[in-house]
Simulated scan of single mutants.
Amino acid sequence: MRLTHLGGPTVLVELDGWRILTDPTFDPPGRRYGFGWGTSSRKTEGPALGLAEVEPVDVVLLSHDHHADNLDDAGREMLTRAGVVLTTRAGARRVAGGGDVRGLQSGEETVVRAADGRTLTVRATPCRHGPPLSRPIVGPVVGFAVRVGDQRRTALWMTGDTVLYGALRTAAEELDVDVALVHAGKVRFPTTGPLRYSMDGSDAVDLISTLRPRVAVPVHYEGWSHFSEPPAHLHEAIDAAPADVRERVVWLDRGVPQEV
């Protein structure tokens, strides 16, 4: 598997001949985006590569469409040229893909087929993008567990934007994962005080310890003003983790393809 981290949650995954893109964000930096209920965030870093360097894309794994740090304007436009777009059920009603947009809720699976017969089986996994009872406000989010062909092992798990909670722990206990993309950053907003909307470094360590993937890749912890945990703190949490966790973590340099 080859991974190229473009910034934020956006990763190009090259797997068994497939080009898979997670949460497309390609707008330039500087703009502030509203997230609803008085919350907003400014994009502080642009993508490491442009769309021309990333396309064509066979499959987009879109954890949710309603927050610009997971799908911005340029990312939304590129969906019209993607092969298959997988997202939430609500998101599938709102986005315009290249003709094959599929909405999933946690626990549902779909099979993506290539013209040459290769297949990917993708299962939506649980996310809660905030504290208890926040889902009606923050909206639905899913992660994705991807299997290749008839393999039983999960080749790729993208956690999506989520706090660490019971259903996510259960998924981590049940999945047998090769490579995990772990969304972190400890999202907070001034208007909602101490409430957190994504995992911090300690949560990431806890999740990786439970999941025990071959490789864990932290993503979506930089590039936006609503991340309250500086990247250095995430690095410190990983560095202080037990060896069994620390040795599984791979840090990606933005824009640089890396075999994992």
Rank of each mutant, 00 (worst) to 15 (best):
A82T: 04
T87A: 09
S63C: 09
D116K: 08
V111H: 07
P140G: 05
G75I: 01
G117W: 10
G130P: 01
V111K: 06
N70M: 04
V112H: 06
L71C: 08
V122Y: 03
E77Q: 14
A114E: 12
N70E: 11
L120M: 10
V101M: 00
R123A: 01
F144Y: 09
A92M: 08
L86Q: 07
R147H: 12
V146K: 07
R118W: 12
R113I: 04
H64M: 04
D100K: 08
L120P: 02
L61H: 06
D116T: 09
D69N: 02
E55D: 10
R118M: 12
E108F: 03
R93P: 00
N70H: 13
R123T: 13
A115Y: 07
D73R: 13
V85K: 05
L62H: 05
T121Y: 10
A90K: 08
M158Q: 13
T125D: 09
L120S: 07
Q105S: 14
T87R: 04
D150T: 15
R135D: 14
L61I: 09
D161A: 14
V101K: 00
F144H: 04
Q105I: 07
A155M: 09
S106V: 10
T159S: 15
L86V: 06
G149P: 15
G83V: 13
D58I: 10
G117D: 11
P132T: 07
V112A: 11
G98D: 13
D58C: 07
D116F: 09
R118H: 14
T88A: 08
D72Y: 00
A90R: 15
E109L: 11
P132G: 10
A82V: 15
L120K: 06
A124Y: 06
T88V: 13
V95L: 03
E55C: 13
D65P: 00
D65T: 04
P140C: 08
F144E: 01
E77I: 06
D65I: 00
V84R: 04
G98I: 14
G103W: 03
V122A: 07
T121S: 15
V101G: 00
P56M: 11
P136G: 10
V59P: 01
R76Q: 11
